[in-house]
Amino acid sequence: MFLYRLFRGMFRILYRFVYRWEIIGLENVPLQGGVILCSNHKNNLDPPFIASPIQRQVHFMAKEELFKIPVISYLVKQFGAYPVKRGMSDKGALKKSLQILKEGKVLGIFPEGTRSKDGKLGKPYPGAALFALKSEAAVIPTAVIGDWKMFQSMRVVYGKPINMTELRQQKVTSALTEEASGKIMKEIQQLIDEYS
């Protein structure tokens, strides 16, 4: 946790002075209980960008390959990351994610699963929706806004929690997961449209 706080402070300085960091809606992120931060994905710097304003530690999935590199593996573990196998359904990562939420922690996830090449929202994978449906965590739509050019403004916007109550009362099916995914992505897009 010490290393996490140390690097969080370093990233705060980097973003504030190099990218003119602007934080909007931080009050929408609960201070307690499970939270899912669902964000668009534009750059490799996105994870610490959306996590650094929050006093709580944010856990992210990271590609399995990183955990095979000794020093990198140690660091990403200290940052609260855990491995996920790309290109396939990873039940272990799914179970770990739900456990994080059950323990009342914060999970950061990019529903698109990869960085957008044109800056536009892509088609979401079902993971974020599944976590939202199978947990009682607050689902916070999050938007990274800006072009990641040095000394130009970058914004991170946290929206109000998405009401998932009605969907959570239904049996989880592929159709319901798709509906939940659409709801999440719609909220993210609205933040992008409003604050760009």
Rank of each mutant, 00 (worst) to 15 (best):
21 W>S: 05
109 I>R: 00
148 W>D: 07
149 K>T: 13
146 G>S: 12
72 I>T: 14
38 C>M: 08
66 L>T: 04
133 L>C: 03
137 A>K: 09
26 L>N: 07
83 P>Y: 08
109 I>M: 09
130 L>P: 04
40 N>M: 12
64 E>K: 14
67 F>L: 12
39 S>A: 14
43 N>D: 15
58 V>A: 02
50 I>E: 00
35 V>A: 06
38 C>S: 12
24 I>D: 05
92 G>D: 06
139 V>Q: 04
141 P>N: 13
96 K>V: 00
136 E>P: 06
121 L>N: 02
133 L>K: 02
92 G>C: 00
64 E>M: 11
75 L>I: 15
56 R>N: 04
59 H>A: 02
92 G>N: 14
39 S>R: 12
32 Q>C: 02
149 K>Q: 14
103 E>G: 01
84 V>K: 00
142 T>M: 04
66 L>G: 07
77 K>R: 15
61 M>F: 05
113 G>P: 04
100 I>W: 00
32 Q>H: 14
97 S>V: 00
52 S>M: 15
40 N>A: 05
60 F>K: 10
132 A>C: 10
29 V>Q: 07
113 G>A: 05
137 A>R: 10
44 N>G: 01
124 P>Q: 05
76 V>P: 01
63 K>N: 07
21 W>H: 13
119 G>R: 08
64 E>V: 10
61 M>K: 00
51 A>P: 09
93 A>V: 04
57 Q>K: 15
133 L>Q: 01
49 F>R: 06
108 G>I: 11
111 P>F: 02
52 S>K: 07
115 R>N: 12
85 K>Q: 14
48 P>Y: 13
28 N>V: 05
107 L>R: 10
87 G>H: 10
72 I>F: 15
60 F>R: 00
84 V>I: 15
91 K>A: 06
87 G>K: 13
74 Y>E: 08
47 P>N: 09
97 S>M: 13
68 K>H: 14
147 D>Q: 15
98 L>I: 12
116 S>D: 06
131 F>C: 09
124 P>W: 08
141 P>D: 08
47 P>H: 14
121 L>K: 14
122 G>Y: 07
42 K>Q: 15
111 P>S: 12
130 L>V: 03
67 F>M: 09
23 I>A: 00
132 A>W: 03
109 I>S: 01
140 I>G: 03
88 M>V: 15
142 T>N: 05
73 S>I: 03
132 A>M: 11
137 A>I: 01
61 M>V: 00
101 L>R: 01
33 G>S: 07
147 D>H: 13
103 E>A: 11
42 K>Y: 00
59 H>C: 00
145 I>L: 15
37 L>K: 05
122 G>C: 09
84 V>Y: 01
97 S>F: 03
132 A>F: 10
106 V>A: 13
140 I>H: 06
24 I>M: 09
130 L>W: 02
140 I>V: 14
90 D>N: 07
145 I>H: 01
54 I>C: 06
70 P>D: 10
129 A>K: 08
36 I>W: 11
58 V>H: 01
20 R>V: 02
124 P>T: 09
92 G>F: 01
114 T>W: 07
23 I>E: 12
83 P>H: 11
110 F>S: 10
130 L>N: 04
71 V>K: 11
120 K>V: 01
62 A>H: 09
32 Q>G: 03
52 S>D: 11
